[in-house]
């Protein structure tokens, strides 16, 4: 799908400036830069769902398809996996692309009929109806808004290292959830899945001293309470894992404090240190 593009290109972006052409206009870009990023920077709209800066692009949603002109021939490729190089020429709205995009939006409207994001984006491209059978499931923990792009699965596995959720089943039966659709023991409750979800399908809620991940089989994780102001501020497991990566003197200062109280304490300490006061009662 990504046509052999490797991660190294993204990990160490070469800074050589190149000129790329988008819809007949020339733009400057860094060699190896993701074309979708270039287009976004110069305000050329290319629709997309599954692009997430913190993860390697993987062209899952297929929406960012553009026409690449090469020796007079135009071939379709996803802009997120396309890398800028000198002379790269792309077209974003050829009749082929428009037709392709229309069908794709129709498929998304059928796959995630409850998603406001999908509806809104499809409407922007003139698609308000679908010819395909809509996936209707009243008990769907993702509220009929999941497009199965897999960003939540990737962020949970590749970035958080929790691996609490994954794809289940295959084909039209595919869903994302916890194994055995039971509350997960691996979930930190960080909420990264909800943060990256392009259709806001992941539902979670902080209630009392708990975070409840409704979409992930009602997984519950305890929240840490700020020792200073009493506010619940982060999942306990996440706080512990973050603190374990901080050196002891600073860690002791930060432990058990919410971000606001943390800032207050550190600022007070700095000011007292600068003015020669006693940091002891900071």
């Amino acid at each position: 799908m990504t046509q052999g593009k490797t991660g190294t290109e993204l990990a160490e972006p070469p800074k050589k400036p190149v000129t790329v052409s988008i819809n007949g206009n020339a733009y400057r870009a860094d060699e190896g830069e993701c074309l979708l990023t270039v287009a976004e920077r110069v305000k050329i709209p290319i629709p997309h769902f599954c692009f997430e800066q913190s993860l390697e692009p993987y062209g899952a949603c297929r929406l960012c398809m553009v026409g690449v002109v090469h020796h007079g021939k135009t071939v379709m490729e996803t802009a997120c996996t396309l890398r800028a190089k000198e002379g790269l020429t792309v077209l974003t709205d050829t009749p082929d692309i428009v037709k392709y995009r229309t069908i794709l939006f129709e498929l998304y409207l059928a796959e995630a009929p409850k998603s406001a994001v999908v509806k809104e984006m499809a409407a922007r491209y003139g698609v308000t109806k679908t010819r395909f059978l809509r996936r209707v499931d009243t008990g769907d923990p993702l509220g009929g808004a999941c497009i199965l792009c897999g960003l939540c699965v990737r962020v949970c596995n590749e970035i958080m290292g929790a691996g609490a959720i994954n794809f289940i089943n295959r084909g039209p039966y595919t869903v994302v959830n916890t194994p055995f659709t039971e509350p997960s023991r691996d979930c930190y409750g960080c909420g990264a899945c909800a943060a990256v979800c392009p259709t806001h399908a992941v539902s979670l809620e902080d209630r009392g001293g708990e975070r409840i991940l409704h979409s992930w089989s009602e997984t519950k994780v305890p929240l840490s309470q700020c020792v200073s102001c009493g506010k619940y501020f982060a999942p306990a497991a996440l706080e512990k894992s973050v603190l374990s990566r901080i050196e002891p003197p600073l860690r002791d200062d930060l432990e058990g404090l919410c971000p606001a109280c943390r800032a207050k304490k550190l600022a007070k300490k700095e000011i007292l240190a600068a003015t020669g006061g006693d940091p002891g009662d900071a």
């Binding site: 596995n157 691996g163 609490a164 959720i165 994954n166 794809f167 289940i168 089943n169 194994p179 691996d186």
Partner: peptide, 13 residues
């Protein structure tokens, strides 16, 4: 290997 990964494979095939 995460149980979520194994469960994903088992339900796929």
């Amino acid at each position: 290997v995460r149980i979520s990964q194994l469960y994903s494979i088992v339900t796929f095939y």
